[in-house]
Design a protein around this nucleic acid. Structure first.
Lengths: 254, 254
DNA sequence: AGTGGACCCTTCCACGGTGGGAGGGTCCAG
DNA sequence: CTGGACCCTCCCACCGTGGAAGGGTCCACT
């Protein structure tokens, strides 16, 4: 208060923001200078504004987008901490996601410890249920299908089999089946390529990576549906202990 | 191989990339289609290219920048895993940074549990060393200074005191001192505002936040140098157990 | 009273990586 | 032969920041 006003440069150093950023935040109405000289256009900030500026700097550092920050600095204390907690959860989710990516990356650096081999996938007579889902919802949809399937199937025996199309699209059809008393889906015997994946489903792409490389290298043509055999499934063990066979039918080219 | 070529749309769904992305990667020379129709301009991808495409998709998902990806897919297996590991470390560092930010954010959501009070900072007669550093290197520089100080000071007694300017700039001067036999720096007694920070230094900005808010609200004027008293310092305890008093000299306005 | 240099102003462009849309050509099945 | 799904190129927008151009303003030291 009083005439203790700071130039934009001093204020910037005070709160660890760049002059550019301060001008930008002014433009957005996120942090309006206490006083703007009508003649020269010079911005002047009061010391009391350092509080908001520091809040902004902190939140930006945590990658909170500017509109969200605007909402936070504008809100009253009660609402504010709720918003902050929400941003915290967003950040926590990103950390979790990054950890998955990191594991994937490290596994990829080990250069595909996948043992790919040709096989003959047996004919299957399955009791199955299917659904349509979007690319991001595969895991979720498959989980729900398994629940439906196992509560409906009588006299079934493991493993549960997932059936997927080769390419991923908007309204893709996924199915889950199991050998049971009253099959409603028959898959023929087929030449195939297979490998076994150990670990969480988030890392399945690596296995597909290895399989498709193998197939591509040999000029084979993959065919839908791809089968996933859940040999050790969630519920039986933790994510690290899961075991899944992936079976991609193939045809000789031409 | 053979003429098992896929249109860009099918290929995109196969490897979970958008058509836009594939065109962009073609333009960058990151993933050139196996065949481009010279008349229509249609891009056609071979199945064997799915390997690289999947690698790219995986790496993009881990936020690896495209130029780095280009280097990776172009390199041979040996070099490749080294590059991948380097990217992994980059990601790990980001996770670590994000965890710090998250803690900070959560602490901020608790709405400043800082107990700010006015005090009279005592006159100090310090043996001190100083250095010039950039905003990012404060922690590092201060740590190095403390090492130099304690090996030079005789008969010193804690706490170590850090002295900092009010605003952060390119070649800012930071000093570290301690009460010892042969003082070379005398600070006068001064009115001040103080608070105590518990926890890692990465969260010190919160304490400054609280102090500057308090100061700003009352229309006081902060004065350099700011004192930090390292009551429990690294080496004595883990980051969570650190205790630091922050003392900002103030003057009544006008 | 100048003058140099530090500071400030606005405006425009660039980055990286992606998506959207316009405006138009191509392919295939009904 | 026609409709719709697919493909093409080209331009623009996003977010937040930095850089540069081209010019005004302030202050301390001659």
């Amino acid at each position: 208060m009083r005439d203790e006003l700071l130039t934009i440069g001093r204020f910037a150093r005070l709160c660890r923001l760049s002059v550019k950023q301060l001008r930008h935040y002014d433009e957005l109405g996120l942090l309006t200078p206490a006083h703007v000289d009508p003649h020269s256009g010079y911005r002047n900030y009061s010391r009391a504004q350092a509080r908001d500026a520091l809040t902004i700097a902190l939140l930006r550092d945590a990658d909170v987008p500017l509109p969200a920050i605007a909402e936070i600095v504008r809100s009253a204390a009660a609402e504010r901490s709720a918003l902050l907690r929400a941003e915290g959860e967003r950040l926590a989710a990103r950390i979790e996601r990054d950890r998955e990516r990191l594991r994937l990356l490290e596994r990829l650096a080990l250069d595909a410890p996948y043992d790919v081999s040709r096989t003959v996938a047996p004919a299957l007579a399955l009791m199955s249920v299917e659904d349509v889902c979007d690319p991001d919802g595969i895991g979720e949809a498959a989980g729900a299908l398994v629940g439906r399937l196992l509560s409906a199937a009588e006299g079934w025996r493991p493993p549960v089999v997932g059936l997927f199309p080769l390419d991923v699209r908007e309204g893709m059809r996924v199915a889950v089946g199991v050998e049971a008393l009253s099959p409603n889906l028959r898959l023929p015997e087929t030449d195939a390529v297979t490998t076994r994946h150990h670990g969480p489903y988030a890392e399945l792409p690596l296995a597909y990576h290895a399989l498709l490389s193998w197939i591509g290298d040999r000029g084979l043509a993959p065919r839908a549906p791809v089968r996933e055999l859940y040999l050790v499934a969630p519920g039986e063990a933790g994510p690290e202990e899961l075991i899944t066979d992936i079976v991609i039918p193939v045809e000789e080219p031409k």
